[in-house]
């Protein structure tokens, strides 16, 4: 088992290196110059000094040298500075990541509870009106563009009713909880519908399986069948999906952060790519990539623990 875990961990390193090289190379191809991004054309700045700055940042050096400098810095634990803002990237992440994680985690819990319970109820009462309603909601949740749903919520709750603020995280005029509700609802919708579909289908599969049929034949009460046997077996794949979804949520909240001006990491990434602020793009990309790798690693370990066949097959 230890060997299996070690092997998986070591596999991650070349992967991360390769991804970082890929992203670095692609960013070079964009040809965006972060230094000239600082100076807006409306108020042209000090050209000679901008050239000096470009030189200082090593932007004139050849691509490979800059890449290795960058890797060296990262290995020494130096994440570098944002070119356009000057904030150390460590600070930047510390400022912005909690907002995204808060949004992603809470939305995930809410949608896990909602999605799984609706899914199970739908499966138990298959082809009943409840099932149709649940399924329709699930399909709708996947068909409606997230930002459109967000705009609808803003129109209803912020503009028409004036109950909830339409942007930001903290402010002097509304509690953090009220700021949180709309972005959370928006992110919850799509995830809930995914989870609902999954848990309904899994539950149906389990309910039709032989051993549940046997359990029923043995005269075990329906509730007990659902709770004890079916639920547990149906949940395993759903948990795996959840594990996979968290890192995706981090990069996927880009759109939602833009609708609600939520000060998270997604908007930092968007702005940094647009501005060619490569130290920021590199670190954030690697961070998200690493979290995806770790999540899939955890899933692998979990499955291996639960099912010895996988482990044997790998070795």
């Amino acid at each position: 088992m230890l060997k299996f875990i070690l092997k998986k961990l070591i596999q991650m390193i070349p992967m991360l290196l390769f991804i970082s090289f890929l992203v670095f190379g692609a960013l070079q191809l964009t040809g965006i110059d972060p230094v000239s991004y600082i100076a807006t054309p409306d108020m042209a700045a000090n050209q000679e000094n901008l050239d000096l700055l470009r030189e200082r940042l090593g932007l004139n050096q050849p691509f490979l040298i800059r890449y290795f400098n960058w890797v060296g810095d990262i290995l020494r634990g130096n994440f570098g500075y944002s070119i356009t803002n000057g904030t150390p990237i460590g600070v930047l992440i510390a400022q912005r990541l909690p907002a995204t994680i808060e949004l992603a985690l809470i939305s995930m819990v809410v949608s896990a509870v909602l999605g799984i319970s609706i899914g199970i109820v739908s499966a138990i009462y298959q082809n009943s009106p409840i099932d149709y309603l649940g399924r329709f909601f699930a399909v709708l949740g996947q068909a409606i563009p997230q930002f459109f749903f967000g705009i609808c919520l803003i129109q209803i709750f912020s503009i028409k009713l004036g109950w909830l603020p339409s942007s930001g995280r903290y402010s002097t005029y509304a509690t953090p909880l009220r700021h949180f509700i709309l972005p959370c609802l928006t992110l919850t919708l799509s995830l809930t519908s995914v989870l609902m579909r999954y848990s309904r289908n899994n539950m149906l599969g389990v309910l039709n399986s032989d051993y549940i049929k046997t359990a029923r034949m043995k005269g075990i009460s329906e509730t007990k069948v659902y709770v004890k046997h079916a639920f547990r077996n149906a949940m395993r794949p759903v948990l795996v999906i959840l594990c996979f979804r968290l890192p995706m949520l981090i990069s996927g909240s880009v759109v939602i952060e833009s609708v609600y001006n939520w000060p998270g990491i997604g908007s930092v990434i968007t702005d940094a790519v647009i501005a060619g602020d490569y130290p920021v793009v590199m670190v954030t990309t690697l961070m998200v990539a690493a979290s995806i790798l770790i999540a899939s690693f955890l899933v692998d370990v979990l499955t291996a623990l639960l099912d010895p066949r996988v482990r044997l097959g790998e070795e």
């Binding site: 912020s158 503009i159 004036g162 603020p165 339409s166 942007s167 930001g168 002097t172 005029y173 001006n261």
Partner: peptide, 17 residues
Amino acid sequence: VTVNFVADVVTAAQAGL
């Protein structure tokens, strides 16, 4: 004096900010 960082002037104004 309070200076709020906001995304949109109109919403901020509607919120009395």
